[in-house]
Structure formats: C-alpha cells, structure tokens
Nucleic acid binder design. Structure first.
Lengths: 384, 384
DNA sequence: GCGTTTTTTTTGAACGTTCAAATACGATAT
DNA sequence: ATATCGTATTTGAACGTTCAAAAAAAACGC
C-alpha cells in the first residue's frame, strides 16, 4: 500500500479513473451513486479509490457546485462552557446532516469578530449560526443566517429564549426569597448587546414591580475570562460585594460569570448562600457540581443546537420557507447557591416556600426540579 | 449600497475587474500587492472591491495554488476545558500566521475520529494538529502532522510533555505527604492511549520506588462527560472511594476527571483534602477557583498551542527542517485539594514540609507556587 | 441483420482563482 | 522616426470537480 514513488500530492478523480480504466465522470457517478453504472465498473472504481486512498477535494466540488457543505459557527469565547458545549452539539448535528462545522470565536472583541466573519465568508460557508455577535453585522446577502442570541430580526432565522422574561423570573425568585438588594453582574464577552439589554430589562422590571428602584452601585460589568482574576473590572466586583450597602443576592448574566462572582465572594469570606445568593444563566455542566451548586436559568442548549442546525440546513435545502422565529422557554433550576435573605428590616413577610429553610441553606443538596412555574407561583406572594 | 438587482451570488474578481474597468489579473495583483500596478488603477480596483463587498473565494484560490491556509485541529471533547482552551489559543495563533482553524472533535470515539479526520483531509487542510487521537491513524502523506498527545513518533512533529515523569512526580508528591493508598482515575476520552499509558506508568513507578505494589481496586476508568454523572463507570468510582480499603489520595489523568472525582467525594461526604487528597492534570481555569482549588500538574497550554501552530506553519512554509521533538516540563501547582495523609500505621515519618499542616488543610488558601522542583526536594525524604 | 431504444460511458465546459507568458504602453536613447 | 527597454496590463491555461450533452455500447424488436 506504499506509493512513495508517486508525487506527494493527493490523488484526483483522474488518477482513480486511470487506474480503474474508466473516465472522470464515471468515478464521480460511483461516488455519488447516481447514474447507471455497471456493477463490474463500480467495483473496479471502488477498488481504485481504496487503492489510492482517494478523497474528494471539497474545494473543487464547492467551486463547481457553487455551494459548500460548511456551516460557520460564531461563538463568543471558547473558554466559556456555554459556547464550547454548544459547539460540540452543533458539530454533531451538522455532521448528521452532512455538513462540516467551521468554528470561529469573537473573543468578545468587535474587530476580532469582524475578521472571523470575513474568514467565514471567504470560505463561502453555506450558513452562519451566530451564537455571539455584535449588533453591527455586515450584510451577507448570499449566506443564510441563523441568530441564536440577540433579538428576533428581520432577516435570517431567530432561535432564542425570552431573555427578558427569564431574567425577570429569576429576579422574582430572589425577591420571593426576601432579597431586596439584588446585584446584577454582566460580562463583556456576551452573546449580543440586545441579549444583555433584555436580561437587564427583565431584572429592572422585576425590581420595579416589587417597588424597588435601580441602584447603579449594584450593577457591575466584568472583564472576560476566569484566568484574569485581577482585572480592573474584578475590582468593581469586589467593591460591590464588600461595600457597606452590599447586595444579599446577585443575578449573573451567565454561569461563567456567576463562577467569578462566587469565587470573589469566597475570597471575601462571604458565605454562599447564607450571606449571598447567586443566580446564573445557562446551566453549564459545572453548575451542577455539588461544590458549585449554582441556581441558574437553564437553557435547552442541545435543543437550541439541534434547532439551529435544522434551521440552517432547512433554509438551504428546503424550498418551503420555515418559520423564522422560535422562542424557547428556559427553566429556573434551583440549587444551593440561593437561600432566604438574611433577616433585615425589609423582610417583613418571609414567604412560605415549599422547602424548609434548613434545606435551602445546605449547598450540598441538589434540588434541580423547580421550574419556571415554581417561580411563577411564588412571585405574586411577594411582589407587592 | 444596495445591489438587490444583482444575482444572489457572491461577486468575483471578474465583477470587480469589470466595475474597475480592468482585468482579472490586475485585481488579483492589487489584492496581493504584488506586481507593478499604477496607483490610479489600484485606487479604482480598491473602490470596486469595497463597492461590491468582494471577498476572495478561498476554495478557488486553494484549487489553483494547490494548498490551503487551513489548519485542522483534532481535539477529544470540547466540553473538556483543556481542549476548548487549547482550541481558543490555536485559533488565535493560527490567525496571526494567516491561517484558519478547522476544528473537529473525536468525542473519544474511534469511529467519530475517523470520520472527522476524513473530513479534514477532504478539506485538504495544510496540516493537522492532533491534540487527541487513537494510535491507529490513517497515513496522510501529503498533510503535515503535529502531534501534541501520545509519544514521539517517526513521522510528523511531536510537541508534548514528559507524561511519565509528570505523573511520577505528582505521585511522589502524594507519597511525600504520607499517602500510601493512592488511587488512579482515568477517563475514556483521553488524548492518546500512549499518554494514558505513560501517565499510568509514572504512577506505578513512583509507587514501586516507594515499595508499594499496584492495587487494581484503586484504578478506575471513568466515562466521559460531567453531564452523565450516573454512568456505569461512575459507580466504579463510588465503590472505589467508599470501599473499606479506600484510598487517601487519588491521581486523576485530567482536571476534568478530577472534578468528577471531587464531586463524587462530595456526594459521599468525604472531606477534601482531610480525608481524600486529589491531584489532577492540566491546570484548567476551573482548578484555580477557590471552591475547587485543585492541586494539579500544570501544562503550558498557551505555549503548547503556540508551538504547535509554529511547528505546523513552519513545516509548511520553511524549507529548513525544524527539530521535530519538543518536550516540555510541566510543573506541579499545589493547591488546597491535597494535604498530609490522615494518620495511619504506615505514616511513620511525617515529612517536614515548608507549609504548616494547618495551612495545608485549608482549601481556600492558594499556594500555586510549588513546582516540580519542590516535589523533587521532598521525594527523597520519604521515598524509602 | 438492422433500425431503435435503453443503458452505460465519455467529452467539453465551467466554477473563481492564480501562474506564466504575452502584449500593450511610455519613455528614453539612438 | 525607430529601436530599445522597463513598466503596466491582459490573455490563456490550469487547479479538481460536476453538469449537460454527446457518444458509445448493449439490449431489444421485428
């Protein structure tokens, strides 16, 4: 099987054809199982393919067919498990549909994003799935777009969750636990400015419904990456958590961010959840670890991945236009990072929760069953 | 700027040439800044490019030039931060050198790996960086290979760390803390069978040097993924950790695995590090979190990423042959997941460490300074 | 055996780019 | 004015594949 004599360049259909004693097109036909090919010929061609270890050149195929089987995927930060897990699922579903995933990450920087998108376009990806992007997107007329973050747009398919509502429900849950000073921590590497806004809007709305005004001192925007713990932004977080009017609970725009907050609290010696409740967004694998046990808004990540691939491939292959807005409902997974607010003047009316306070306080216990409905039931009791 | 009248197909050099009133080649020349192009012409071409939002078709370029600027990267499991962080760095360095990253993950399955490699070949990637692969690799003559896992091979560049030595040193460190029953937990989705073997060999060697035999009951191979905590393999782990002859320390082949072990211990109510010391491999971002505070063998991940891109690009662009074996020395980062072994008959001679036992026991304290050298100094005192 | 249909195979052209060679253009020198 | 040279630009061909159409081979009917 050693063809060291041959030039170090990959064999082509013509090489295969020559070896099989036939022509280009016949080889092509065998590969695609299309036209009528005599069984005898087919065998010879297959043998030649195996012999030469021939693999079709997808670039040449693309050129002639004028479309690729590549799905571009744009994520924010691969270090964030939300994105890496999403990428993993997308790769899986894409392959199932006969597509290859071309992954690119923005790192949360506008310029990087632009370059990466350019690169995807240069590769003429058939579609781009945007899991993270700035609002300022170059118009790509000839590329199918699927947006997973942000807000429903006019062009392209949108698949997402109701961010505002989710944040509102998560905040309401904290309110129902008696928290009145609830902080909000965001990250720089976010999926989309609009997602940020929507989540923040939900947070604000829940507060205002409870008659609580927005306190800017409780809002922090974090730098990216766990690995840069001493960034400037991190100091803002420390100040927020250690100041005199520090919050008793914090809503984080991502689990990844929640981990930073949790770590910061650990550093400050704040007990979680006794002194500080934390709620995240995403429900990444780490949040389920007993040590972390993060209460979080769970996103149906696998489903989102499947739907976005479906949407992309569907838009490419089906003539029938699909519905271009899919809105999913995330659910709140209650774990050990949240508890009743420490007794304070504001907490006049401690709500009767279905779990005993003792159970609420033990971080080890994992109660990942409570859903959005639970929150809904609870909110009216307190939102006054 | 709206060209809705034009066909929904990307503009080509010819479109640009027509608009600029010049020819294909001149456009090409402008793009590559090569030949003599009159300033006046150059401007017109650039204007046309901007006007049409032209982007070169890399597939066509590839076809003509007979090589791509794409680096294939094969990882094990994107959910494992080791791989996702590596991918992130590789993407960065690749872009710096003018290359695009085409990421593929094996999921630890032989068949998936094979399909993904096929896909990389079909895309005619200029090189493949193997961060995870089975020993059984198809011979790819016309593709540059860089191996980051496994053992130095005859073909391709090898960049790695001395796995055996690292594992030996980590084990020795545990021995120096007085541990005698030291478990070993591996994962299915590993970088390479040989890496596994090397690490395990190091573990065994350290044990045998200390006069301790191998106890099969202390060796477990875990299923993949944190998200499947109740897998069959997980039960093996539980049994190992809760059995009568349970270990006082465990060496894990990856941080990702160590987290599973840690979580399992938490579930069993085993105090870390008082009742169980844990050492991992990789030093991913999560291991530095105070809640985790995992003692681990730190890999110079960014450096490895940079070197592998350098090696790949170097092999492609330089005529001079580079050294094809780079072996790096990882360092042991001592954090809170390890402590002196609980007093037992075997621990006759507790070593005098430079940290007080009290400090050793507090998980919150991060002492990430100790390196391999520290271990070296300590080992002789105890290894008798 | 010969025209006709059906099946199988081959050939030419094209996808968008770049290399190599050819040509046009301008200027300078003769 | 013409040869000469350097600069600027264009043209033809090719990369490896597939589409469309042509051609060849085989099968069929009478």
């Amino acid at each position: 099987m050693d063809h060291s004599g041959a030039a170090a360049r990959p064999p082509t259909v013509i090489d295969v054809a020559n070896l099989a004693g036939t022509s280009r097109q016949t080889v092509s036909n065998v590969i695609h199982g299309k036209a009528h090919v005599r069984e005898q010929t087919r065998k010879r061609v297959l043998a030649a393919i195996a012999e030469l270890e021939y693999r079709p050149n997808v670039a040449a195929r693309h050129l002639k067919r004028r479309r690729t089987n590549v799905l571009g995927v744009l994520v924010g930060d691969l270090a964030n498990p939300f994105y890496s897990e999403a990428a993993r699922h997308i790769e899986h579903y894409a392959e199932q549909r006969g597509y290859t995933m071309l992954l690119a990450s923005t790192g949360g920087e506008r310029e990087t994003e632009q370059r990466r998108v350019e690169s995807l376009i240069e590769h003429r990806v058939a579609a781009v799935i945007f899991l993270a992007y700035s609002s300022q997107q170059p118009t790509i007329e000839y590329i199918t777009c699927v947006f997973v973050a942000g807000l429903p747009t006019s062009h392209g398919v949108f698949i997402g969750v109701d961010e505002r509502k989710s944040a509102e429900q998560a905040t309401s849950f904290l309110l129902s636990l008696g928290h009145r000073r609830i902080g909000y921590v965001n990250t720089i590497v976010s999926s989309h400015p609009d997602s940020d806004k929507a989540r923040f809007a939900g947070y604000r709305r829940a507060l205002s419904k409870a008659g609580i005004g927005l306190d800017d001192a409780l809002v922090v925007r974090l730098g990216s990456g766990i690995e840069t713990p001493e960034s400037v932004r991190q100091h803002d977080l420390q100040r927020m958590l250690s100041g005199p009017g520090r919050p008793t609970a914090v809503l984080c725009a991502a689990d990844y961010t929640a981990l930073q907050v949790m770590d910061c609290a650990d550093g400050l010696g704040l007990a979680i959840p006794q002194q500080l409740s934390i709620v995240g967004f995403d429900d990444t694998a780490y949040s389920a670890l007993r040590r972390i046990s993060l209460t979080t808004v769970s996103y149906p990540l696998r489903e989102i991945a499947r739907l976005s691939v479906d949407a992309a491939v569907g838009a490419l292959e089906d003539s029938a236009p699909k519905r271009n807005r899919i809105l999913m409902q995330p659910e709140l997974v209650v774990r050990g990072s949240t508890a009743l607010a420490p007794t304070s003047p504001e907490t006049v009316d401690p709500p009767a929760t279905d779990a005993s306070p003792d159970e609420q306080r033990r971080p080890q216990v994992r109660r990942s069953v409570s859903t959005v409905d639970t929150v809904r039931v609870r909110r009216p009791r307190n939102a006054r």
